[in-house]
């Protein structure tokens, strides 16, 4: 369990195998609740917490549960974690709970969670499983919040409105108006905006990957001094 393992896990969750923009899992909540930063952050936190809990629990019991019943057990664990977190949000952030509505209980059906439980946590020791859950959750959450910020900014000209729903009355004035008198670009906060901006985020990620690859290839392709040509096609000039 070298540090390299953790680095690999983080890189996977946050970038290479990002649940939202590479695996394209959990798109339904991703599209539905990212109209503002506060909504996105609420769902991101809930999802990350569920992932962390379920990965932890699944890893702990991985040697007890037989293959035949492992899926029903995992589902029970996930459903219990989701229900508990839903109750907690209802108690402490009631208005946000109402805004997120059906998408909180639906975390249960987010494929990322059962996927990580079965594919990773059930085969790996506790610390690694926890790290994986956290990083996958963060990877999903960061995209959620990024999309929320993008859409809120373009759609309203401000950021961090209504943060008091999540952080209590002290956060009521966190709202930052970036453009005064902004001509709201409503498309961004309406449902089609979710699709368009998710697409653009995926495209942006692919573009960065391609740049990185091109740079690596360029480095590799640098001619080694004294190398011999093995085969030549065409004319030698």
């Amino acid at each position: 369990m070298a540090a390299a393992d953790y680095r690999e896990l983080s890189l996977n969750g946050l970038w290479k195998n990002n649940p939202a923009i590479v695996q394209l899992l959990g798109l339904c909540p991703l599209l539905a609740v990212t109209g503002s930063v506060v909504n996105a952050l609420g769902l991101a936190a809930a999802t990350t917490l569920v992932l962390l809990c379920s990965n932890t629990a699944v890893s702990l019991i991985r040697n007890v549960v037989s293959d035949a019943v492992r899926l029903p057990v995992f589902v029970m664990i996930i459903a219990a974690a989701v229900t508990c977190i839903e109750l907690l949000m209802q108690a402490f952030t009631y208005e946000l709970y109402q805004i997120l509505g059906i998408f909180l209980p639906l975390i249960t059906t987010n494929c990322v969670i059962l996927g990580r439980a079965d594919a990773y946590a059930s085969k790996n020791p506790l610390p690694l499983a926890m790290c994986d859950g956290l990083m996958m959750g963060l990877g999903f959450g960061i995209i959620l919040v990024l999309l929320g910020a993008l859409r809120e900014l373009l759609g309203t000209g401000a950021l961090f409105a209504n943060m008091d729903l999540l952080f209590g009355p002290a956060a009521a004035d966190w709202k930052v108006v970036l453009v005064e008198d902004y001509q709201a670009f409503l498309l961004a906060i309406l449902p089609p905006g979710a699709f368009i901006f998710t697409g653009l985020l995926i495209a942006g990620k692919n573009l960065i990957d391609r740049q990185i690859k091109r740079r690596q290839d360029a480095r590799k392709a640098q001619p080694v001094k004294g190398a011999k040509r093995v085969r030549v096609t065409g004319t030698i000039s």
Partner: peptide, 8 residues
């Protein structure tokens, strides 16, 4: 349509 729903 982008304009219509954004700037009705």
């Amino acid at each position: 349509v982008v304009l219509l729903i954004s700037f009705p």
